[in-house]
Design a protein around this nucleic acid. Structure first.
Length: 421
RNA sequence: GUGGGUGUAGCUCAAUUGGUUAGAGCACUGGGUUGUGGCCCCAGAGGCUGGCGGUUCGAGCCCGCUCACUCACCCCA
């Protein structure tokens, strides 16, 4: 009988790794909440149309990476490839703008994209995602990037960089697009096939190209930064000023173009050079038109997402794996003693301390080995002799010392020992 | 979707030009101590060599197909 395997690109997170995940989630919640963000949980599936309209019909994500399916009612649904569209949908559906002022939300959970898996990239992956609605101010752009820095720091990752760019608004981008297209045509056929194709479909993407030849030809290309309108320039300058005020280091990188259509003005990426070909551990930007385009009020917005798998990969390189071990282990000899240990273990657990025990009546040696492997600090040895005298051996595995203590009040004794640690 | 690499025990890997019963370390179980962990010693268990087909007297090894994993491209977190 052949065993069933997990779906390609969708991984189990086993107990030995789950400590990383819990640590990251805890840090994320603490930092985001302290910046005023509140959690929202949306379904993993949405109407297909939401993503098509939100992310852009011609993006790779929508064109070829979505898990789309027809449900039994004949509706076309898709597993979410990212969180922003869902949060915007929810924001509009529940009229969350009605309370006025700005609203900040976050979400942590799985996303799905049907890509070829590789290091740091999977078909089911997990993101920490945050969105702010209702603020035009460049201050929030800067605050979000600063917050991402605080978050990365709190998680325990070092040596990451922040790249920022501006894409301009739809108005000035249109102007620049034509200028760039003209330049690309003047340069002739020297570009790679992909770039020649992009020239007509989405000229801005040529800056994403990693082919050496293309990068050289683009050295003298006109820069979007030289063509943006005054409002966009002022916004970008203000973002940079605020970042400097916060002491957040950044580099302006005109190549941060991003693959989702909704971004405008500020875009940014948090990058590392330690993940093979995957360099971005997080990214985001401003998307002022999206809420309106999805049928809501004309509300500005900024957001970002971080890839949890990539954070875990980095943490594994930098830190010791967090371990979880019980407070004590009950080793017993004889059926009577084992039955007593069984009851005591439940009572201790009920008081909030992690306790493990032998259920099978193994040899004491075997139980001690197991206790050692579990990492338990104390082993409570309960044999027929101890039981007869209403006593118990309490062995400290770290100091290798043990004391004979009365069985009466043993729970309180252990709780006291724990609180003194 | 396109390329490259790799598939042998739970894990990491051996196995001569194709040659007899596929090995080791770690991990696991038991014992060395009829009641005491790590270190040490002994023993045990664990394999359709990813699958199917081909070449051959003979295939873990060569060939074809397929599947899986992996890295990279594209793109993205």
């Amino acid at each position: 009988m052949e065993a069933v395997q997990a779906v390609r690109g969708m991984n189990d997170i086993l107990p030995e790794q789950v400590g990383w995940w819990q640590g990251i989630e805890t840090s994320a919640r603490e930092v985001l909440e302290s910046f005023g963000y509140r959690e929202m949980r949306t379904p993993v599936a949405e109407k297909l149309e939401l993503f098509a309209r939100g992310i852009g019909e011609s993006t790779d994500i929508v064109e070829k990476e979505m898990y789309a399916f027809e449900d039994r009612n004949g509706d076309w649904l898709a597993l979410r490839p990212e969180a922003t569209a869902s949060i915007v949908r929810s924001y509009i559906q529940h009229a969350l703008h009605a309370e006025g002022g700005c609203r900040k939300f976050y979400q942590i959970g799985p996303m799905f994209r049907h890509e070829r898996p590789q290091k740091g990239r999977y078909r089911q992956f997990h993101q920490i995602d945050a969105e702010v609605f209702g603020l035009d101010s460049p201050m929030i752009d800067a605050e979000m990037m600063h917050m991402v820095g605080v978050l990365v720091d709190r998680i325990g990752i070092t040596n990451v960089g922040l790249n920022i760019n501006t894409l301009g608004c739809p108005g000035c981008r249109q102007v620049y697009r034509e200028v760039l297209k003209k330049f690309l045509i003047e340069q002739g056929e020297g570009f790679c096939g992909d770039c020649l194709r992009r020239r007509d479909t989405n000229p801005l993407r040529v800056f994403d190209c990693k082919v050496q030849k293309c990068a050289e030809l683009l050295e003298s290309a006109p820069r979007l930064l030289d063509h943006i309108c005054n409002d966009c320039r002022a916004h970008f300058d203000a973002v940079k000023d605020h970042l400097e005020r916060l002491g957040t280091r950044y580099a302006v990188n005109p190549r941060i173009v991003r693959g989702l259509d909704y971004y405008m003005r500020t875009t940014f990426e948090v990058i590392t050079d330690r993940l093979g070909s995957q360099s971005a551990i997080g990214g985001g930007g401003r998307y002022d038109g999206l809420v309106r385009d999805l049928g809501g009020p004309d509300v500005p917005a900024v957001g970002f997402a971080m890839g949890m798998e990539r954070l875990v990969l980095l943490l594994e390189q930098e830190k010791e794996r967090p371990l979880r071990s019980p407070f004590c282990f009950f080793a017993s000899l004889g059926d009577q003693a084992r039955a007593k240990a069984f009851v005591l273990a439940q009572q201790l657990r009920g008081r909030g301390l992690e306790a493990e025990l032998d259920y099978e009546g193994r040899s004491l040696k075997s139980q001690m080995r197991r206790a050692d492997k579990s990492g338990a600090r104390y082993v409570l040895i309960l044999g027929e002799d101890e039981l007869a005298r209403s006593e118990v051996q309490v062995r400290d595995m770290l100091t290798k010392t043990q004391r004979l203590l009365p069985l009466e009040n043993i729970l309180e004794t252990l709780l006291t020992i724990d609180s003194q640690k």
